[in-house]
Every structure is written in structure tokens, then in C-alpha cells.
Design a protein around this nucleic acid. Structure first.
Lengths: 206, 206
DNA sequence: CCTACCGATCGGTAGG
DNA sequence: CCTACCGATCGGTAGG
């Protein structure tokens, strides 16, 4: 009664969310039964249902986790970069780091985008768009100052960087079979950074 | 007996493949029952099984279609561009055109990459890699001639363009919710072309 | 948090 | 190309 009832790191609810994230990412929502998740979490199926109500609610909880992360991270990044304007570097680094930490996160996002549950678009727009709006504004200012090339379509550029980052991290080790020396994820990410910089910034004169 | 028994454009086998492609793309392999496909094709389930043996064989047939297209298209593109070196433009245009014709193709490819059935990597490597190898060689030559920037990682560059093109065409109308004016697919593709050109070619001196 | 149970749907087969 | 049928698994509920 005096100790928090379920604040352990190996909390049941947490364990369910962890395994659900992994399995949804690896096998997809439809390819994963709540039975598999329950077993991975070391409980019986009705216990999972007791905690989350339904498979679909569990899906929303899993997705909510990721959205929540960026809802906290984007403001942090914007603030940290406020001196000297937001830096492409730190943003891309944060993007890479988060999805590299657990590549299943990238796969999950991609799958959700493909399945397009109604909840997703709505939540993205409501929770994340306000922050990316700020980012777009900052970039537009940099463009006005001549730091960013005049021919850049800021909104599309941002979207493309995000799409590509997630794409590479989710399936980069599978697409590489297309091309002979089979460049690794790191090679692809480094080339992505080069491409982004080259096509975003006005070449320095001197 | 004198007329071909099933060469109609509305051939049963063709109709099954068509509906399977659409449904696998929209709902995923695991999210689509052979019952749904049969119904969409206007037949009963055992008839589908009679034609394709199993759900998994149908999956391979659906994927085989797409691989076959590029197996024919890549050599064609390489040959057409042989005078003056392969042109980035025609390649990207062909890529866009094929996947724009039916966006479900892009979604299907992305889903297969995520599901990573063993057959996929093997088939990509065996059927498509020989042709992309030629493309890489041609680009490397252009790089030696100074047409392509010296700092380009050719293999990663190619992979990134393909990943991004498919990504945009598959989920571009969903990711756009992230950014305020919500740029359309066409905006994103045009910006992708700009990014590719800017980051690939050595700036002309003049 | 569990045991026991539910109807519905799954992919596939038998047999014609 | 179909009807009739199969065991297995699905998500979820009753009740404790």
C-alpha cells in the first residue's frame, strides 16, 4: 500500500507494451495475435485483455508511446537550437538516434502508415504538426537570409528527410540486396546526410 | 479447343492476381484472407486454391509480377540511355511512372520489404542486381569524368533514391499530415528530383 | 491475474 | 470451377 503498485521497470503493463511494439513491428498488427504478445510477456491472454481492453486499444497505446516521445523531443530540439537557428544536424541526429536505438520503431511507424488506421493521421496532425510548423517557420527565415537555397521546397524537403530516414532504418538492410556491394545502414545514413546538406544549403562563396 | 482456353484479359487467374495485388497492398498479406480475394475475383475460395495451390504461392506470384516488370524495364532503360550515359531523369521518371500508375504497387513493395519473406531478398539479388550493377558501373564512369560529384557514394545514393521514391508514393499522402500546408505527392516528387540532381551532379562552371 | 468457454473465421482438402 | 467439410486459431467474455 505504501509502495507504488506497478511502477516497476518490469511492470506487467510495460512488458506488454514492449513485446507488442516488437511483435507489431516485426510481423505487423494483423500478423500478431494477442496470444503471441501475452506469451512473450509471460502472462495469459485474458490478462492482456484485462489491461488494455482490446487488441485495437493496445495498438493505440503502442503508437501513443512513439508519438509521446516526439511530442517531448521536438520542443527540446527546437529550444536547444534556438541560438543560431535550428540545426539540420542535430535534428537528423536525433531522428537517427531514436530509430537506431530500436529499429523496430521505424518498422512500426512504416507499418502504421501503410495500415493507416484513422487514429494515426488525426494524432499526427494534432500532436506533432504544431512543432513541425515551428521548424518550417525557422527554416523559411533561414531561407530568407540566404542560408538555405532559394529553390528548396521546405515542407516537401522536411517530409522527404523524415520519410527517407525512417525508410532506411526500417528496410535499409533489405533493399541493399538490390545493389552489389550492399551498402550498410551506416553508409546509407551518411550518404543521406550528405545529400540533405548539399541540396539544402546555399554553397558558401569564398 | 481451337481458341486459347484462358488468354482473356478477364481471365480468372489474372483477375485473382489483380485483386490479390490490390488487397495485399491495402491490407497486408496477413490482413487479407483468401476468402476476400476470391470474393473480389468473383469465384469461390477453393477455386483460388485450385489455381495457386496455397496463399503463400499466391503471394510469390503477386511479387513475381513486379519483379518481372523491372527485369524487363531495367535493360530497356539502360539500352535507351546508352548514348550519352544513363540519364538520372529517365530512370527516375520510369520509377515514378510505374508506381504512380498504381500506388498499390509501391505499398506492396514496402510491405514485402517489411515482412521480408525469404523469397524476396533472394529474388531481388538474383533477378535485379545484375542490372543495377550495370547502372552503378555507368555512374562510376560518369563520376570519373567529373559529371557526377566526387563525394557521392553511388551505391547508397541509388538505394536512397529508390527507397525514397517508393516511400513517397506509398505513404506520401499520409506523412504529409506532419507538416502544415500538407504538400501533395507531386510536390514531394518534384522536390525529390531537385534534391537528387543537386546532390548528384557537379555544379556546372560556366 | 487465471481457467474455462464462446462464436467466427482462418487456410486447406475431399470429392465430384 | 463448385459444395461440403476439416481442425486450428482468432479476439473476447464469464466468472472467480
Amino acid at each position: 500500500m505504501s509502495t507504488a503498485p506497478d511502477s516497476h521497470p518490469t511492470d506487467v503493463r510495460t512488458r506488454i507494451l514492449l513485446e507488442a511494439t516488437r511483435l507489431f513491428a516485426e510481423r505487423g498488427y494483423n500478423g500478431t495475435s494477442i496470444q503471441m504478445i501475452s506469451q512473450a510477456a509471460g502472462i495469459k491472454r485474458p490478462t492482456l485483455v484485462y489491461h488494455f481492453g482490446s487488441k485495437d486499444s493496445l495498438r493505440e497505446a503502442v503508437l501513443g508511446q512513439l508519438v509521446k516521445h516526439w511530442q517531448a523531443e521536438l520542443p527540446r530540439l527546437m529550444a536547444a537550437a534556438s541560438d543560431g537557428g535550428p540545426r539540420l544536424d542535430s535534428l537528423m541526429r536525433a531522428l537517427f538516434q531514436f530509430f537506431l536505438e530500436d529499429r523496430n520503431r521505424a518498422r512500426l511507424v512504416l507499418r502504421e502508415m501503410l495500415d493507416a488506421p484513422d487514429s494515426l493521421t488525426v494524432e499526427l496532425r494534432r500532436e506533432l504538426q504544431p512543432w513541425t510548423q515551428l521548424l518550417v517557420d525557422a527554416m523559411r527565415t533561414a531561407q530568407g537570409q540566404g542560408v538555405i537555397r532559394h529553390d528548396v521546397d521546405i515542407e516537401s524537403f522536411l517530409l522527404l528527410i523524415i520519410t527517407t530516414s525512417i525508410g532506411v532504418l526500417a528496410i535499409g538492410d533489405r533493399t541493399k540486396a538490390l545493389v552489389p556491394p550492399e551498402p550498410g545502414i551506416d553508409d546509407q545514413l551518411m550518404e543521406l546526410i550528405r545529400i540533405a546538406k548539399t541540396s539544402l544549403f546555399t554553397p558558401r562563396e569564398s
